[in-house]
Simulated assay, not measured.
Amino acid sequence: MLKKKTAVVIVESDGSPKKNIQVPTLLLTHWKKVLFSIIGLLCVCVFSLIYFVRQKTSEEYTQVYDQKINKLKAQNRQLEIDDFNNQMTNEEMKKSFHVIDSTIERINEKMKKRGLKAISIKNAGGPVEEGEENWTELAAFYERELKNIDAKLEEIPLGMPHRGRVTSRFGYRRNPFTNRGREMHSGVDLKGRVGDPVRATAKGKVTFAGYKGQYGYVVMVQHSNGYETRYAHLTRTRVKKGQRVEVGEVVGLLGSTGRSTGPHLHYEVLQHNKKLNPERYFSF
């Protein structure tokens, strides 16, 4: 059928022939059917392409959606686990804070026995908040309380001003010069070498620094709660009257001045002018 052809002449606008081509006669006879077939085929191809693209896009969206759903489910499970752990943590935190409260109460009792003021909150009041605890605020509260305890401890003469061996304790002893009779020893003697640093056992204010009779060179420091410490027989003082000193600050150098049989530190602790046994304060 396609072998039978018809000549088609293409002419110019003036009517002169330009080109002569051979076209199968069947196409010319049934050109409408052929045209509709081509158009139909193109429509099928276009719709097929659109369907394919939409199907693939839908699968990609479904995959992304499923991934997001699975991620949200995993986050939800993690939130449930975290919530359970937080509940456990809250209970543990409550127990920990109760332990701190009990410890502060015990510290207060010990401080009262030593004639110290208990840790308390002054000028307080207001409504009590009900419901869940604010752990941040509660932690800040205990931080302030512990800083308060730390500040009070700095004002109590705790520890040793020199790490030497105790050679003479507080109380009555034999006279070290005559080796006869008894005399009251109002502090403790710590053996050392001349020039060893002597450190303050609590922060306070220097009330005397210089030479004072049997004490020799001595430093006297006034602390809170009526406490006073004295560091005697020094070879030299390192502070001046009226000076503020901190815990561990060097106040003088060990020596053997005044009524002394050899290099040592004579250390006294007083409260409200009553002399106490310093060894009670060597450990907390």
Rank of each mutant, 00 (worst) to 15 (best):
K5P: 01
E91R: 10
Q78V: 07
K113M: 13
P24K: 00
K73T: 15
T103F: 13
N225T: 10
K152F: 07
E228T: 14
P161Q: 12
A118W: 02
K68W: 14
E132H: 09
E92M: 10
A232E: 04
I10C: 02
I100C: 05
W31H: 15
V206Q: 03
V64A: 14
A74G: 02
Q63W: 07
L158F: 15
V99K: 09
K240V: 14
V23T: 03
K240F: 07
L253R: 01
L42G: 10
Y231I: 04
V245G: 02
T62F: 14
Y51T: 14
R165K: 13
E59W: 06
Q78R: 09
C43K: 08
G181Q: 01
F141M: 06
R173D: 01
K110C: 13
K212Y: 14
Y215N: 05
C43T: 14
C45F: 12
Q87S: 13
T136M: 06
K191N: 10
L276S: 05
G210W: 09
E109H: 12
S48Y: 11
M93H: 03
K4L: 15
G258R: 04
H162F: 11
A151I: 03
N86T: 13
L253W: 01
N85P: 12
K203N: 11
G131V: 05
N273E: 14
I107D: 01
V269T: 09
E132Y: 07
K73L: 12
E60K: 11
Y172Q: 10
R238D: 14
V245R: 00
G216S: 06
K19V: 09
Y217H: 14
V251N: 02
G115H: 00
I38Q: 10
V219I: 09
L276R: 01
V251R: 00
G192F: 05
K147H: 08
T167K: 02
Q78E: 15
Y231G: 00
E246P: 02
R173L: 00
R174D: 15
M160D: 11
G115S: 04
Q63G: 12
E92D: 15
R77I: 14
R174E: 15
R144P: 01
G164P: 05
Y215L: 02
L234K: 00
P157T: 08
S37C: 10
K95R: 11
